[in-house]
Design a protein around this nucleic acid. Sequence first.
RNA 1: GGUUCCGUGGCCGAGUGGCUAGGCUGAGCUCUGCAAAAGCUCCUACAGCGGUUCGAAUCCGCUCGGAACCUCCA
Length: 503
Amino acid sequence: MKLYEQYPVSLTNSLSGKKEKFETLAPGFVGMYVCGPTVYNYVHLGNARTFLSFDIISRYLRSLGYKVRYVRNITDVGHLESDADEGEDKIGKKARLEQLEPMEIVKRYTEDFHTVMRHFNILPPSIEPSATGHIVEQINITKKLIELGLAYEVNGSVYFDVKKYNQSNHYGILSGRNIEDLMESGRDLDSQDEKREKIDFALWKKASPQHIMQWPSPWGEGFPGWHIECTVMSTKYLGETFDIHGGGMDLKFPHHECEIAQATGANGKSPVRYWIHSNMLTVNGQKMSKSLGNSFLPSELFSGSHPLLTRGYSPMTVRFFMLQSHYSSTLDFSNEALNAAEKGFKKLNNALTLIKSLEHPRKTSTINSEFEKNLPGQIDKCFQNMSDDFNTAKTLAVLFEMASQINIWTSQKESLAQVNEETFENYKSTYISMMEEVLGLKEEANHNNDLLDGAVNVLIGLRKKARTDKNFALSDKIRDDLKGIGIQLKDGKDGEMSYEIEK
RNA sequence: GGUUCCGUGGCCGAGUGGCUAGGCUGAGCUCUGCAAAAGCUCCUACAGCGGUUCGAAUCCGCUCGGAACCUCCA
């Protein structure tokens, strides 16, 4: 029996707004597409949260035994600055400002994005396609939509005919809108506008002569519209219908709505079975965003070099902080919350270090029936909680219980003999894999400098000697002086000593 | 204005009809030569009002407060 059969996954489908049982199109396989970053700037912490959420989802599905193809794109062209006539490509604009080639910008921010992902221990996707690498496909689907009568050309640009599409489909199915409301609200078309209706959106946009990124097309020199790249890249690598499409909540409308319309229009079938939207990171209750000026970069968070931050926090602390809430809830950022997260993570991290070196004594002793009942139950709960819409918060609660148990075994070694060896091994491997593989909370070493480690161990030796000699004045001096420079010594029950570097 | 969502103890944050969330903080205790770490115990909430129900934080209605989307955004 596969793990995914033992712990069937249910998830909240944005399409229905309800929690649904997850059934894959092909048994044992999952196709998942997530909208990646537009690489025109450094990714901020809010962006990182979304990619973390889907990192967890892909990690967990894999750990259940699914073979996952995870596609996450890089948007290196296309997203228009405005809907106005001389609509400007974000990347092109930035390039002009900085006097750089567009691909230079793309390269720099793509590298930055990858660096940030690595810091947070967010695994790379299976395929990371870029929009500029799929211009031909985007032109082809645009041609197809024109042929089908769902798009029209004006002046070298091509627009999707939403009204026409809506005659046989529902535009707004994902975000709960209807076309009449949409046509009444929002910005009005101005006289310059080429679109027939304001709800229509560009599939291909004519480039002005000074526009830097442009490609030849049947409609002249231009560049692809805002939404078409995702439709092209998702269907190319995952098929016309695939299992999961994810992205930030703010992409639900219009981006994902348009994707549905394009794909359904072109292929005659709904492209996605389960839509998943992750919620925003907020600061003082407001969405973190570049334009609001309340965003900060991961590097600023690690170093603490931002006015909103009182000090720096490690990547794993931040990862843990984010996993304490559900991906579908907003999460409010604050220094206090980060401080609490740091301590919480430290607890789990210590237990992780401890259990790795904890071995079952292999002696038969009186088996404690309480253990035999509780330990497998906790293992079960980890999976059940994760299978319940990837509830990392609930899973962490179980891991805290397990961490306490690990601490007890560590301080009372004899209690370990009351546990069945197989149960223990299972418990151990579950804790380690839940932490490291599923939640991606890798062990943070307390010390990673061999020279320092050696020097501290010399002092530990001296303190041990002083304590055996009952020379507490000296032993305390060693401890207090080390503490003064940020090294905390800890005496174990068995006479062993360990140390920890304080921040 | 339209669409969607939220309001939980000192703080963060799960939970969506009956059953312990959890973390952090605070108080006390145990262990320890003294600390640190660890363990144990305590502080126990669901914005307000009304309704449904044997029973609601959880469902329904209203009120108040907050947010997101409707313009690029993770």
